[in-house]
Computed example of a mutant assay.
Amino acid sequence: MEETIRGTEAAPLTGQIPTQRGDSLLETAVRYAEERHWDVLPGTWLETVDGVQRCSCGDPACAAPGAHPARTDWTAQATGSATVARGLWQKRPTASILLPTGRTFDAMCVAETAGFLALARMERMGLTPGPVTRTPERRMQFFVLPGACAKLPGLVRERGWSPSSLDLVALGEGAYVAAPPTRYGTRGAVQWARRPTPANRWLPDAGELISALAYACGRDR
């Protein structure tokens, strides 16, 4: 389900990737690869053991049950081919959908409260953010052009903040985000706070969003 900001709701757009309701993991993963040209990766999945849902990794204390890579060589397994993605999820229909960062996009991660504040501020500033996810861990991830990891410390300092003083993290090469409708155990599913649409196909650079994100993180401390 797409979230709205302070009572506003964007008009429906055609050609957008649907929300998680009614779509299988397989079809959603294929559409991410086909429509957005994102690399996709099947991760772990949830299994019911003695009436309790647990991660397929077998660790009862798993920090992200059903929402992390299933293999150590996961970076090589990720694919941008819709055909290959379909084959991977046909073998494991319940596998989570993971999107490697540092390829077609990086992700700038903030606390949920700061994320909604930043979105409202971007709206007032006339900025168009890229897709934004909202996780069951109450984090929000803003998709931006690759390179955000290298730029972030300097961008934060330019605005008078110490990077260590803000809860603002960039994910790039070697990292990943879980995509809707992936579930984190019993905590709930990843959702779109701003879902992929034709209007945000072209991702912003980290520098375009940093003022709103840094301001929101500073207010949220």
Rank of each mutant, 00 (worst) to 15 (best):
E137Q: 15
G130S: 02
F143I: 05
V52Q: 13
L99E: 01
M140G: 07
F142T: 05
W89Y: 05
M125G: 08
Q77N: 10
R86Q: 04
G102C: 00
G115S: 06
Q77W: 14
P69S: 03
C55G: 08
C57I: 01
M140C: 14
P93W: 06
G58W: 02
T79I: 04
E137D: 12
H68D: 00
R124L: 08
W74R: 03
S56Y: 05
R121C: 05
T133K: 04
A85V: 15
A70N: 05
T75N: 13
R86L: 00
G80M: 01
G87S: 12
V110Q: 02
T101N: 10
A95W: 00
E123H: 15
G126F: 09
K91P: 07
A78N: 08
R54W: 07
G130L: 02
T128S: 15
R103Q: 15
F105C: 13
K91L: 14
R103P: 11
R54L: 12
G130V: 01
M108Y: 05
C55W: 06
A114M: 04
G102H: 00
G58N: 03
P131D: 03
P136K: 13
R124N: 04
R134K: 12
P100Q: 06
P93K: 06
G102L: 01
G87N: 14
E112L: 09
T128C: 14
T101Q: 08
G115V: 11
P60W: 04
G126V: 03
G80K: 01
S96A: 15
T72V: 15
L98N: 05
M108R: 04
R103M: 09
E123N: 12
L117M: 14
R92T: 14
A118P: 09
C57W: 01
L119E: 00
Q77L: 15
Q141S: 14
C62Q: 03
F105D: 09
D73V: 11
R121T: 13
T94Q: 13
T133H: 04
S96Y: 05
R134H: 14
Q77D: 12
L117V: 09
C57S: 09
A78V: 10
V84S: 05
P131A: 10
Q141W: 10
M122S: 10
S96W: 09
M108V: 15
T104N: 13
C55F: 03
G102A: 02
G130C: 02
R139T: 10
Q53M: 11
M140Q: 06
L99T: 07
A63L: 13
R134E: 10
V132T: 06
H68S: 01
M125K: 12
C55H: 04
P69E: 01
G87P: 09
L119G: 04
C55E: 02
R71N: 11
I97L: 04
L119S: 02
A82Q: 01
G66P: 09
F105S: 11
R54Y: 10
W89M: 00
L127T: 08
A111K: 10
L88D: 11
G66H: 01
L88Y: 12
S81K: 03
G80H: 03
